[in-house]
Amino acid sequence: MATGGRRGAAAAPLLVAVAALLLGAAGHLYPGEVCPGMDIRNNLTRLHELENCSVIEGHLQILLMFKTRPEDFRDLSFPKLIMITDYLLLFRVYGLESLKDLFPNLTVIRGSRLFFNYALVIFEMVHLKELGLYNLMNITRGSVRIEKNNELCYLATIDWSRILDSVEDNYIVLNKDDNEECGDICPGTAKGKTNCPATVINGQFVERCWTHSHCQKVCPTICKSHGCTAEGLCCHSECLGNCSQPDDPTKCVACRNFYLDGRCVETCPPPYYHFQDWRCVNFSFCQDLHHKCKNSRRQGCHQYVIHNNKCIPECPSGYTMNSSNLLCTPCLGPCPKVCHLLEGEKTIDSVTSAQELRGCTVINGSLIINIRGGNNLAAELEANLGLIEEISGYLKIRRSYALVSLSFFRKLRLIRGETLEIGNYSFYALDNQNLRQLWDWSKHNLTITQGKLFFHYNPKLCLSEIHKMEEVSGTKGRQERNDIALKTNGDQASCENELLKFSYIRTSFDKI
């Protein structure tokens, strides 16, 4: 039985969820670079991206490699990797027998973001014989899940209580170790020597080791999670996991709180800001991140802002960003909400898709409305799209047979046209069989910064309504002859009103 693990408890099935942008060198404390989270699957090609990484700022997932063999891993080693800020997950990587050479110096898994409450997941690794993470000293947050690894031993010899604050939620089941077939031998045991430290858990006094050649490092209890030197002297209180010299914040392997210019500090002093819960960055760093993602459509890219001495992905609820200094300031009234469309555009074809934009005031991208039916549609669209004030790209209304009016965009005031449909149009209306009105132009103002209007096959939309939009939106004169079809717009509506004058002759039985 794995020490510190839980057996036999019912657990939810383990679901495996399925960018080499360097964020800056980590400095003297770390020998390499800070790398983003990685999802490495199918083959070993991307694994080489770990070569210079000291910190993975995010998670590391290595999974679904069915053609790899043990010899493929023999020359692979990433000794610079010290810390993973989120979680480490391995799933069905064939041929991998140990992690001792792959990650010989991995010391800390912070667990800032977890995989279903777990910071370390080893699942269905069919050839893994031992973990071998002999320098792993601290899992700051989260638990361990090690399950269905039929060859995995050296679990009962690990004292997880020396690595985690609590072992109650560890789930370590259905491994070879369960069948008591392992016969784990710690260093020196074969020669009758006791080389590794022994600890007591559940009444068992057991030597602690990761492999037959690597003991588990056990520091004096007084050192807590700070770690200790090879001689057993406690590291500085700002260290986490390990250090090369005692009581020196510049000799830590990793930091308990924050890293700044080669030393570990309790908090980031001005003019620095907390970033990702582990390091200090200056304003320029946060500003660069903001600008890199301002026009990016890459998933996970955030326009970072500053709030409460932190550089964070977005302002919290009730705050909006001051564009001059990136500071989050309290909103006066309802907060603006910028919604970034991942692929640059979004099609609204149902109430469900409209709900995804609920509360958005600025759309960074283009909207395509293609709704053919739905219950209580006008009210639903207004509830979900009615706060949109600005669209950076274009607005396209296409084959939306259920629409009679666009009044559900009740606050839309600006279409920038930074991206144009077919390279020309910022407003595009095609084949809307029941569209009769755009907006009530006596109450609604709309500016279209650039781009043209396109109207074709809107049989109940009168040309007068379209011409009014040209005047109000500032697009009059931009359109070419064929942009607004004269014969297919309003051709099934009563669009022309003329005053009919009647004269009559009164007659009676005795007068003409």
Rank of each mutant, 00 (worst) to 15 (best):
H28R: 04
H28G: 01
L29G: 04
P31L: 13
M38C: 05
M38Y: 10
N52A: 13
C53I: 01
S54A: 05
S54E: 06
G58K: 00
H59E: 08
L60H: 00
L63N: 05
M65S: 09
F66V: 04
D72G: 13
I82C: 04
D86W: 03
L88V: 07
F91P: 00
L99T: 07
K100L: 12
F103D: 00
F103W: 06
P104R: 02
L106G: 00
I109C: 00
I109N: 00
R110P: 00
R110M: 12
R113A: 11
F115Y: 04
F115Q: 05
F115T: 07
F115K: 04
A119W: 00
L120D: 00
V121M: 02
V126A: 14
V126L: 03
L131S: 02
Y134F: 04
Y134G: 06
L136R: 00
I139D: 00
V144Q: 01
R145E: 01
N149P: 00
I158G: 01
R162F: 09
R162Q: 11
L174P: 03
D178P: 07
E180L: 12
E180G: 07
I185W: 14
I185H: 12
P187S: 10
K193G: 07
N195T: 14
N195E: 13
P197E: 08
C209P: 01
K217H: 06
C219A: 01
C223V: 00
K224Y: 08
G232H: 07
C234E: 02
C235L: 02
H236L: 02
S237G: 09
G241N: 03
N242H: 12
C243T: 00
D247E: 10
D248K: 08
P249G: 14
P249L: 06
T250R: 11
D261S: 10
E266S: 13
E266W: 15
E266K: 08
P270I: 07
P271V: 05
H274T: 15
Q287V: 05
Q287N: 07
D288L: 14
D288T: 11
L289D: 08
R297I: 11
V305A: 07
N308I: 03
N309K: 11
K310C: 06
C315P: 01
P316A: 05
T320I: 07
T320P: 05
C328G: 00
C331G: 02
L332N: 05
G333D: 13
